[in-house]
Design a protein around this nucleic acid. Structure first.
Lengths: 340, 340
DNA sequence: AATTATGACGAAACCGGTTACACAAGCATA
DNA sequence: TATGCTTGTGTAACCGGTTTCGTCATAATT
């Protein structure tokens, strides 16, 4: 069970540790005969150098920490896979830790990353709204991390590298697209704009879209509660019951989109409204159900974030970078299918 | 950027490294005054001990390696989250590596785990069929890993701890359930039984079910190709075109189930057949589409696998364990809705 | 009072690598 | 022949922790 060490190899080959180390790190400096002999002994002994020892000695690790809310949804799943692809290409290991979207877990995760002396951190903050006291603490924590960190998906307004989507613009485009298709009363089911920075951005986009279209905001058509399926389900039920005027609905994230669908399918009113959601909802295309949504390519975001981190590690002093990705509007339901 | 070390703390506190180390590991052995002083200095300096150094010194790490095919599907996503929950509870870090279902990647991943000197490995093998030559190599690799490994989901018949589902039994039950509902001609769309051990198990279950029901196997109703959506889509199209007799379909995994749905929805024959799949297909319940499937609780499997590993780490000499989980049959479509 | 036990702490070795530096041999140059 | 350069290798220190063992003062036992 015990692992073979570099000293074991050195002893068996009748050389010093240094020479064995050189075979691993700069083989050209070792005479060919010696090298081949050592390589053969290493192979025979199933020798694999210890990253632990190497990291300690080199004062640099080869693993990157990834902190993500959770993985059981396609958006973060894809994000994660994008990250992994790039790390893999660069021979970096991936230390994973979820924060379950909880601020407390968030701090714990960062502590863990510091303990593990990772090379850098890719970080989707649970903290989704700049709460005064906590932000200072978070800033301190990130500073004392001892390695660079990239903030993904949520703009927490700290002085650091970030990457996220232009959600405001995306929702604005969605509104304008619906208006162009003839809709004038567009409901909006969203997360809490006061608690969640993404919700706030998207609400801004909604209002901006209406403004540009010259339409008034009807507050009775705006629901801002939780980013949860059940919330959209209830909101939609209430809307269908109380409001007659609206012909279209925008939902502020994937879960809300599902809640919307649940409500309209239950009420057998699936064809009654136009709907644009944020992020693709799986299965709809297969079932030939119209699916219009704001596409945010999280796989791509993951790749860019990882590349950003690698670049930051290579050039610690380079200027802070803030990448804003533009989502696109996908209209799978053709023009003629759209309800008005 | 440089991290504070134990020596720095010792120096500032005017004590030896040993004492600081004791504050971290066995604080009761340090006099209260000294301890408080050291603790305060540690806090002020944002000191976090290096896991790297500790691991090297203790010759034991606190991270567990997890090797999984991919994370962008619910089954493995849930599995992963189950694993993470247990590791988290036990203060173990998680080093992730996907193998993309490729044998080559598989070996690389194991090498990486060995390099990183993880405490144990949770492993969903890409290798899904005992190919003679490779199995020996894999065995060797696992033996030289230097830590225990648990094999998840796929029974590769090596002498090691394993956990997987009784897929044969599950498909058998599905067949019998359909027979009981009056179906006699049941099509089966599956992966390749010759290349994939899961496919083989499921095919066995299909045949066993027919046998128990006293029905003959009609080979024209059996399609065994790839575990991919597109395969089931094509298979189902062909079935609908060529065969008139069958009234029910069993699909061998989640992707195949989706391909089945795509085909029947495209042909507007969604109500023509009874269908039982393996693993839940998302969204169907929300859309009020009948959804019968074999439920394999991968979250639970993840938790049990992680517990198994922890137990194996604690008791290296205990008897090899092979856990067989029983899937259950979920019939969301009520009896009266079922087609015959 | 002498002996033993206990408590608090430090010196130094160790974990498995890397690396600065030293050294010797061989060869080319002056 | 003396000098310098290159090549191949080894010695020893170092990375940041843990741990064994020893020391010394104080408390408990006889």
């Amino acid at each position: 069970m015990k692992n073979v060490t570099i000293s074991d190899i050195a002893q068996r080959a009748g050389v010093s540790k240094t020479t064995v180390s050189r075979v691993l790190n700069s083989p050209e400096k070792v005479e060919e005969g010696t090298r081949k002999k050592i390589e053969q002994i290493m192979k025979a002994a199933h020798y694999t150098p210890s990253a632990t020892a190497r990291n300690l000695s080199k004062q640099a690790s080869s693993t990157v920490g990834v902190i993500v809310p959770e993985l059981n949804n396609a958006f973060y799943g894809d994000l994660f896979m994008g990250i992994e692809e790039i790390l893999n290409k660069n021979n970096l290991s991936l230390l994973y830790c979820s924060n379950e979207d909880k601020v407390k877990k968030d701090f714990e995760a960062l502590d863990m990353m510091k303990t593990q002396r990772v090379k850098g951190v890719l970080y989707v903050p649970a903290m989704n709204y700049p709460a005064a006291g906590l932000m200072g603490k978070l800033q301190k924590k990130l500073e004392s991390l001892g390695c660079p960190a990239i903030c993904i998906d949520r703009d927490i307004r700290l002085h650091m590298d970030t990457i996220h989507f232009n959600d405001k613009k995306a929702v604005e485009t969605a509104v304008l697209s619906l208006v162009e298709a003839g809709h004038r009363d567009i409901a909006f089911i969203n997360g809490n704009e006061k608690k969640n920075i993404l919700a706030a951005e998207r609400y801004e986009g909604y209002r901006e879209g209406l403004r540009k279209a010259g339409l008034p905001e009807n507050e009775r058509l705006v629901y801002q509660g939780e980013f949860q399926k059940s919330y959209a389900y209830l909101a939609m039920k209430e809307l269908m019951e109380k409001e007659r005027s609206f012909t279209a609905v925008i939902t502020g994230n994937n879960s809300l989109g599902k809640g919307y669908l649940q409500a309209v399918y239950e009420a057998e009113k699936a064809d009654a409204y136009a709907h644009i959601g944020v992020d693709r909802i799986e299965m709809l295309d297969l079932l030939r159900i119209p699916n219009d949504y704001i596409l945010r390519d999280s796989y791509e975001m993951g790749k860019q974030a990882a590349e950003m981190l690698i670049s930051r590690i290579a050039f610690p002093e380079k200027k802070i970078q803030n990448i804003l990705l533009e989502p696109s509007l996908v209209l799978e339901s053709s023009e003629r299918d759209r309800k008005r």
